[in-house]
């Protein structure tokens, strides 16, 4: 019961914050709403007993990505009125509707397997052995690491002084 109340509160907060991100004119406040949305999603992870995932969600999305977004906003003009010369409303609307439709269709068509077992007590160990253990996803992890390294080198190459 308490978990249901918590879920509904978090879900409403997350959706309201997500709507605020796209509707607010003030870009800075939109970024703050994005942080609120990330926090609510982390709360939903906690309800699902995915404690490690929740901490990583806060650490990466709130602590790093949102802060970088805010730093980038500081480098732009017209923070309080948003972009004044934007003519991309129609293409963005079409692609957003298409994306929303695809995701909803995929979610409704997937047969979600429900497990009645209580979740594992410590998810950290299970996650680590899945990611780095034998017949785990070590190749995927390595590919992601190389991708990130390539991005960093690319960024350094672009900003390097001649």
């Amino acid at each position: 019961m308490a978990l249901e109340i918590a879920f509904w509160v978090l879900a409403i907060v997350a959706i309201a914050a997500a709507l605020a991100v796209v509707t607010l004119r003030n870009v800075f406040r939109a970024a703050l709403s994005l942080i609120l949305c990330f926090l609510a999603v982390a709360g939903i992870f906690i309800i699902l007993s995915a404690d490690f995932l929740a901490a990583v969600q806060i650490l990466i999305y709130v602590g790093a990505i949102s802060v970088l977004i805010i730093l980038a906003i500081m480098l732009t003009r017209e923070v309080e009125r948003g972009s004044l010369s934007n003519k991309l409303v129609v293409p963005v609307l079409i692609s957003a509707v298409l994306f929303f439709g695809t995701v909803t269709f995929a979610m409704l068509k997937t047969s979600w397997s429900l497990v009645s077992l209580p979740p594992a007590e410590a998810t950290t160990v299970a996650l680590a052995s899945k990611l780095f253990g034998e017949d785990g996803f070590i190749l995927t992890v390595e590919i992601a690491a190389i991708l990130l390294l390539a991005t960093i080198i690319g960024a350094i190459t672009i900003v390097r002084e001649k």
Partner: peptide
Amino acid sequence: DLNIGILYVVAISSVAAVGVFMAGW
């Protein structure tokens, strides 16, 4: 007594910077 204790600390302490940034802006 969270079993992710120290990770929780690292994650939650990074949120405080958002408050400082809000104050500054």
